[in-house]
Amino acid sequence: MRLVTLRAATLRHSGAPVLENVDFHIDRGEIVTILGPNGSGKSTLLRALIGALPLSSGTMEKVADLKIGYVPQKLHIDPTLPLTVRRFLSLPKRISNAAAQTALEEAGVAGLGQRQMTQLSGGQFQRVLLARALLSRPDLLILDEATQGLDQPGSAAFYQMIASVRRQLGCAVLMVSHELHVVMAASDRVICLNGHVCCEGAPAQVATAPEYRALFGTGTLGTLALYRHDHDHSHDAAGHRHPGTSCDHQHGHSGEPHEHA
């Protein structure tokens, strides 16, 4: 069952187009991961889906009464704001102690209710954010780089948790991530963004796509390439959308010597 469908959507950020001509959909129970370099429009797409950013053009269809649970990229809590985990879960709607307890257990942080948010470790904090997102029994769980700042074992554990939440609640999961190997293992479908949809499909399929390799390289080096890479490629004149895996960018690779004699 289609939960959300975007057709030919263009999104602007203070006038300039960030994403152009995006077709996107997500089905119930699916785990979809969005990959892309910084500034490629990943967070912009999520903001449009939660309704924080209107479409400049194109259409968005959501099923009636779609409940979205949102885990933000990072949440800085000012140290002047006293806030227990329990109180945080009751924002903005008050919830029962039983519901709070269940959500904390589901996210693997039962027993932290009376702790101050500012005293939590990075991993605990992300799990509390997840618990809050689970309170509304969402149909769609959206995570914006939820494992930023966690170490390798921490983020691996977090993704396992997401997978088990999906099994328990049957919700769809849409997440943005930079951690390629974990993402590749945990996703049903991967979407590669760079101002438009570069390529998409099953992880194995996308990993071998030339567009993906151009953006991220291959193997372990891929993670490094992500940060070293220049994205000054030019798009073809035909337009910006490149259906399937047939986009023909000329990627400029700063790390690779182009001119061999």
Partner: peptide, 19 residues
């Protein structure tokens, strides 16, 4: 109160809750 507090915490979180 509740909306003010949520918006103070994080604008994106508030928007996702319809505030």
């Amino acid at each position: 109160w509740s909306s003010l507090l949520t918006a103070t915490l994080n604008p994106e979180l508030a928007r996702a809750s319809g505030i």
